[in-house]
Design a protein around this nucleic acid. Sequence first.
DNA 1: GCTTTATCCATAGCTTATCTATGGATAGAA
DNA 2: TTCTATCCATAGATAAGCTATGGATAAAGC
Lengths: 109, 109
Amino acid sequence: MARKTDLLPGTLDMLILKTLTRGALHGYGIAASIKNLSEDVLTVEEGSLYPALQRLLLQGWVRAEWKITETNRRARFYTLTAAGRKQLGHELSQFDQMIAAIGRVLQDA
Amino acid sequence: MARKTDLLPGTLDMLILKTLTRGALHGYGIAASIKNLSEDVLTVEEGSLYPALQRLLLQGWVRAEWKITETNRRARFYTLTAAGRKQLGHELSQFDQMIAAIGRVLQDA
DNA sequence: GCTTTATCCATAGCTTATCTATGGATAGAA
DNA sequence: TTCTATCCATAGATAAGCTATGGATAAAGC
């Protein structure tokens, strides 16, 4: 399909949750953090990010509050909840399991 | 989202192509091979598999011919084409890059 | 001979994740 | 004052994968 994707589908929620373990951040900051840590390999488009944050809010995995940034702007800061931390654990272990399984299929034999 | 997925989305074509590097196989055999090699972690549903094979055929990455199996059944055997082998290379390197990038985001710091 | 199970193909319709394309607003730099 | 970077958000399109079906046959078990 020559899929043109900026992310591995299915990993965005996990990446956001993980990013928030480093402290509360607003949307723009989350995207920037993922982009930087991934060394520009992963790009989170805003049209993916904000719907994802809505999902996470609805699930109760993050909490949001409006604050003022260091750059003097209004922004919604997202914080990981206890449930979110637990969810992250689940997603991480499932991801590891999948990657390991894919690795077994991909290895020569 | 508590996504219920049997695969990491975006990896199915790659898994199929890789499976065919081990020799021609029919659909059922491809699914069985992936399931076995992954130790039952990855399950390819038929509703995912056959549309995927159609995509691969359309792209010219696999070729198909009807044959008789060792168990005496008619089945479509799929073979990797040269273009398919090339495509597999692309997908593998992109996948590796993505996994490495995700790893950087997921690691503690 | 009959039933069951495993093997094999395939499609229609649904769901959902992600992307593209917009639109809007403001702070600070140039 | 113009431009760029920072910030929010949604609508609509695309496409991948799943669920649910439907059909057919070989072989084994009874």
